[in-house]
């Protein structure tokens, strides 16, 4: 194959993976932007959404409705899970501890969800079935294009929600100063709960596109996906909504190109198996060179 066409094909592969990372990173960045908590359980909310899809898609198909409508059930389940996790775990810890204890609680919730799912559904993977039948457009698969379009729509909707609505204004107020926001009549706890509900609903949308792409759910599917999306969010500037989109796409393209060319470039010393290491090396470089990320400015203005 012509090397140029091959390069284009690898870019498309990168977009395919990156569009999923972008959707996941949007949820990460949204929650971080409001309460400054890196929600490590976000990847596992995607798993919860994935399993909801796996169980509801057959029902949708049996009822003669389009399979992707199962995402409604997934959004509801994820939002409820998100609020429960916030009320039962994050909120009590936030009141007593510092940011570090919240972070550790997030890791604990991630493990709890993964292992809980393993007890409930067993260790065997579960198929999801066909969600969309989309035609390919040029070199792009229909699913990839839909993921990118959906990611962009979600990004715009989030920007409008945070910047133009009353609830969004409340979120920004909570993000800047919780005490002052309370004094201004913002219901802080309700605002945070709604932030989690929206963030988790985004996880459900991400799980829909993940399942459309990869067709199978496992109880641990959220861990690596969540970590890479976290790197994407940091690369783009955590807390900055368009940054998550940009970071996700970039990480996907870097991962794909490193898989494709690292072997030839290094004469086989570093192989495509190192692609994950390269992705995480990016995290280290970003933290050293520009900790605020590509689109991030100083911390005070983050939303």
């Amino acid at each position: 194959m012509n090397p140029f066409l091959l390069f284009i094909q690898q870019l498309v592969n990168g977009l395919r993976v990156g569009s999923i990372y972008a959707l996941v990173a949007l949820g990460y960045t949204m929650v971080y932007g409001i309460i400054r908590l890196i929600n490590f359980a976000h990847g596992d909310f995607i798993m919860v959404g994935g399993y909801t899809l796996a169980f509801t898609v057959p029902l949708m198909v049996a009822a003669g409705m389009p399979a992707w409508l199962a995402v409604v059930a997934a959004i509801i389940t994820c939002a409820i899970t998100g609020i429960l996790v916030e009320k039962l775990a994050y909120s009590p810890v936030r009141r007593r501890g510092n940011r570090m204890s919240s972070l550790i609680t997030a890791i604990a919730m991630s493990l709890l969800l993964e292992n809980g799912a393993q007890v409930l559904f067993g260790a065997n993977p579960r198929g999801v079935g066909t969600l969309f039948t989309l035609p390919n457009i040029g070199v792009f698969s229909g699913t990839t294009l839909l993921t990118i379009v959906l990611g962009a729509l979600v990004m715009i909707a989030l920007q409008l929600f945070v910047n133009k609505t009353k609830m969004g204004r409340g979120m920004r107020a909570v993000s800047e100063d919780k005490e002052a926001a309370t004094l201004m009549g913002v219901h802080v706890n309700r605002t945070i709960a709604i932030t989690f509900a929206v963030g988790s609903a985004l996880a459900a949308v991400a799980s829909l596109m993940y399942c459309a792409q990869y067709n199978q759910v496992t109880t641990t599917m959220g861990s690596m996906l969540g970590l890479k999306a976290f790197v994407a969010a940091v690369l783009g500037g955590i807390g900055v909504v368009p940054g998550a989109m940009l970071g996700g796409i970039l990480i996907g393209v870097v991962e794909s190109l490193s898989k494709a060319y690292i072997g030839t470039l290094t004469g086989g010393v570093i192989t495509s198996a190192f692609s994950d290491a390269i992705v995480f090396a990016i995290l280290i470089v970003v933290l050293l060179v520009k900790p605020a990320g590509i689109l991030g400015s100083n911390a005070g203005e983050k939303v």
Binding site: T220, E255, A260
Partner: peptide, 21 residues
């Protein structure tokens, strides 16, 4: 000859594109 990071990777399209080429 292409390798993946683990037995549980979900995306092999980059390696497969090279292989098929």
């Amino acid at each position: 000859k292409e390798s993946s990071s683990s037995m549980t990777d979900t995306d092999y399209s980059a390696q497969l594109t090279n292989i098929i080429a």
